[in-house]
Design a protein around this nucleic acid. Structure first.
Length: 477
DNA sequence: AAAAAAC
């Protein structure tokens, strides 16, 4: 049973272009949603990001859009500006017709350029709610000819903070239109709002691909009692040695603070959150995607939809507020058939939250302990050896051979090699590990501490835990 | 209670 784009009802020209792009088999969500959308039905599509959602709604639109009319015929709303850019890019790639125009509109960027382009005409507009409303009230975006309205990441778009804007936009769109909600989760609010805004919708759901979770190794590192998460993070990162990582935190403030700490420790890392200017945000993403920055500390701005090629790690430094958000966050890794790792830092106060997550994903996270210095050093030596083997097989060796020969007249060859290794080893260690003072393995104190501070000594200060305890105390009541 | 989203 081979499925083709042709069998879904897409035209020959469209299918040929898709083949040129290297797409010959529809993904499950595409296979299910495209025929319904082509037939004019409203659709609720339930699928994770990275499953080909964008093409699932874009292809039927491209198939039926009137290219001889430059009025806006389709509007796609996304919850973040970067997602709008990303969706815009992939829609643009899906059409080869010169008469087809798609445009992205979002805040944080001069509105003049966006207005100018809108005046030139675009059949499809992708945007964030605030800027779309702004353009609507200025009269620069007109929805009179709108045939399609798509909410990407609908569960997020229908959240408290967004819902009013989205409702105002929906109310300005012609009633005679096709509407699609794409969402990773179907909670009661989505069902309710779908009933409100969609006309006898078909729900298509790709059965939770059992393959997705197994492509992500999930580990829960237990933060020892009395340790801050910041202190536990560095040894964990040393052992995990992520090629690239998104480190999720709860607030913008923590993002900035943690970034500064990690940078001071010598890591290639930068911050990403809503306190940055749009230009900074875009520059950061570009640098991250081009591998000029290895790790990014981010708020939930990066939890959804964001695509970074070959992201090796997702780190939940702070656990997310909702179990759904956990699924979104870890979904940034393990994409396109690659293996990914999702690690979480579990403070003693986070254990309840961890259980909720485990119940939701019906799977236990593999427990992990903060690595000891010995474990990290072993890991460093191991990677040094494999790097050495690579160098031995490489072609740059010749330029270093004369030095080795010269030194060889004075020293034993094995001593020279060992000294070179020592130099390389010292350089791979981050600054904080070079100082013995900072890095002291504390005896594991797993005895549950009684509430009263019996010893009478002041409690160790716990910088990182103040927000956490505050957060959970409200649940205790 | 925080984050995102318009100036």
């Amino acid at each position: 049973m081979t499925l083709s784009f042709t069998s879904l009802g897409l035209s020959e020209g469209c299918v040929r272009h898709l083949e040129k792009l290297g797409f010959d088999t529809p993904t499950p969500i595409q296979a299910q949603a495209i025929p319904h959308l082509l037939s004019g039905r409203d659709v609720v599509g339930l699928a994770q990001t990275g499953t080909g959602k964008t093409a699932a709604f874009a292809l039927p639109i491209l198939e039926q859009v009137n290219l001889n009319n430059s009025a806006v015929q389709a509007l796609v709303l996304t919850p973040t500006r970067e997602l709008a850019m990303q969706v815009y890019q992939s829609i643009r790639n899906l059409s080869s017709d010169r008469r087809f125009w798609v445009q992205a509109v979002y805040g944080g960027q001069a509105i003049d350029g966006q207005i100018k382009k809108l005046r030139r005409g675009s059949q499809v507009v992708v945007g964030t709610p605030g800027r779309v409303l702004d353009l609507l009230s200025r009269g620069d975006l007109k929805l009179d000819n709108l045939n399609w309205l798509v909410l990407d990441e609908a569960d997020e778009m229908l959240n408290m903070g967004f819902i009013q804007d989205v409702e105002r936009i929906l109310s300005q769109a012609p009633a005679e239109r096709q509407t699609a909600f794409f969402s990773a989760t179907m909670d009661p609010t989505i069902r309710e709002l779908a009933a409100k805004f969609l006309h006898t919708p078909v729900t298509v759901q790709i059965e939770q691909p059992k393959a997705a979770p197994t492509r992500i190794d999930q580990v829960a590192y237990m933060v020892p009692r009395g340790w801050t998460k910041a202190r536990a993070l560095q040894p964990i990162l040393e052992l995990e040695d992520p090629e690239s990582a998104l480190i999720f935190v709860r607030t913008r403030r923590t993002a900035a603070d943690l970034t500064r700490q990690l940078q001071a420790a010598g890591y290639s890392v930068d911050e990403y959150h809503g306190d940055l200017s749009q230009a900074q945000r875009e520059r950061l993403l570009l640098r991250f995607r081009q591998r000029q920055v290895r790790w990014v500390v981010a708020t939930d701005i990066a939890a959804r939809g964001l695509h970074v090629e070959d992201l090796s790690h997702v780190v939940n430094y702070d656990l997310p507020d909702t179990v759904e958000s956990y699924v979104h966050r870890i979904g940034r890794t393990g994409r396109a058939g690659k293996q990914g790792r999702a690690i979480a830092l579990i403070h003693p106060l986070d254990k309840r939250k961890l259980r909720e997550i485990e119940n939701h994903i019906r799977q236990k996270l593999e427990p992990g302990q903060v690595p000891t210095r010995a474990q990290i050093e072993a890991r460093h030596l191991e990677s040094l050896q494999s790097q050495l083997r690579e160098a031995l097989a490489g072609d740059r060796l010749a330029s270093f051979l004369p030095i080795a020969t010269e030194l060889g007249e004075e020293y034993d060859m094995r001593a020279i090699a060992a000294a070179a290794l020592q130099m390389a080893y010292d350089q791979t260690r981050p600054t904080w590990m070079r100082s013995e003072k900072v890095w002291v393995d504390e005896p594991k104190n797993d005895k549950p501490r009684t509430r009263g501070n019996r010893s009478g000594k002041p409690r160790p200060s716990r910088r990182g835990s103040s927000e956490t305890s505050q957060h959970f105390s409200s649940r205790r009541r």
